[in-house]
Design a protein around this nucleic acid. Structure first.
Lengths: 224, 224
DNA sequence: ACAAACGGGATTGTCGACATTATTGACGAT
DNA sequence: ATCGTCAATAATGTCGACAATCCCGTTTGT
């Protein structure tokens, strides 16, 4: 695998802390405090905040400092919608470019997903799910779309928590992945795009379900 | 119209200069030089460069400074592909949300586009074209998608130059816009998405044509 | 003649200090 | 009691200076 981990500069440290949910939503990020906490200078923190603002993980108001961005329910759904579009494109392209090697990897990831699903390992399943999509991204050979999709995913990641608890979701998800895989294997571009869109429409639906469930019982996931 | 022009800080100044093509591709952006040229401090320039790097308009290599990003032909095509996906989504949503007021504005813009096309005013046509799409964006009421589409557009804007010279393009473009408008007016979401995708597929094709033409005769548009 | 080490000049990265701006709470007038 | 004023405080924005790094032409050694 080619993923070399990034050097621990202020940007990556802070980013990791945010997407890992180690700050409260809407929490103020005081430059000096963050700087000492991360063990870097205030300058570096400023630069990091600018980047994270542009990236949508932080809001940066002039003269009023930075806050970790509170992604609204609505925005989470919007993000998922856009992601569906872009990943549809990626699947389309991947279908005509995917190598036998990549197909083997995809197949293997899928098998393992099934195992984790049967074993009730939701966390492992999520990770493999991400891996599955990433494999499609590299097969699509479309850096622009991949970059955007990755950025979107990092913003909405906090919301994916709730989606696990939907009954029967994993089995269904598994079948959707199989459909995508089948289209890729057959080099059926339109089919792959359709399958991917359908899959992400389901994810969107589940996300909506999770948000509503959260509104009915806003206790779990309130902390952190 | 609601577009209040941004305060002239270093970021907006520099950004405007870049998208207007006032720098050579791949030109080095020395912080001190840019600072004096824009009449701001080096700190502000640094912040601006970070944002522009994240935005994809400049590349920022550690200890090696910033350059205006040279968008390759391939990347321009990639950007247009992704834009087609996202604007397809926007058209889809706009179809069910567009107000009679917005429809009137769209219609008026279209009429004026026809006039400019007949009058041979390519520049005016381009501006109206951008306006047409923006109207759809606000009708779609989808900030996330609009933001991404806008960012992509600004990156590829340099390439849109050549597309003007394709014979018969404007008439065809006009018909495509009419198709989009018709679907919006009928509140036909799937039709609007399809029309928009078809339109942008044509744009993509024209872009490819322009790039090839440019390779055959790389003299015009070489300067600036 | 060629490659590697060297060094000057230019540019970026970082730090501390200071000016500028928001926020908070107390105080006082109506 | 309520609102407005004002000072105190805290945080951000900006600047200048210095250190670290890179680039490139020159020297040096074989």
């Amino acid at each position: 695998m080619k993923v070399l981990l990034p050097a621990p500069d202020a940007y990556h440290l802070l980013r990791e802390a945010i997407v890992a949910g180690r700050f409260h939503p809407n929490e103020r990020l005081v430059e000096a405090a963050v700087a000492t906490k991360l063990g870097v200078g205030r300058t570096a923190v400023r630069a990091a905040l600018v980047r994270l603002d542009q990236e949508g993980l932080v809001t940066l108001e002039p003269n009023r400092g930075a806050r970790v961005r509170l992604i609204t329910d609505r925005e989470a759904l919007e993000i998922e919608e856009v992601r569906a579009s872009i990943e549809g494109l990626l699947a389309y392209r991947a279908a005509t470019r995917v190598t036998p090697q990549a197909l083997r990897e995809l197949h293997q990831v899928m098998m393992e997903m099934r195992m984790r699903a049967d074993g009730g390992d939701s966390l492992g399943y999520s990770e493999l799910n991400a891996r599955f999509h990433q494999l499609i991204w590299v097969a699509a050979d479309h850096p622009t779309a991949s970059r955007l999709a990755g950025g979107l995913k990092s913003q909405a990641i906090r919301f994916q928590y709730g989606t696990i608890f939907r009954p029967g979701r994993q089995e269904r998800s598994l079948r959707e992945h199989e459909a995508i895989f089948g289209a890729l294997k057959a080099h059926d571009a339109a089919g792959a795009e359709a399958a991917m869109r359908e899959h992400l429409a389901e994810v969107l639906d589940t996300l909506q379900w999770a948000i509503e469930a959260h509104h009915r019982a806003p206790n779990w996931a309130a902390e952190l």
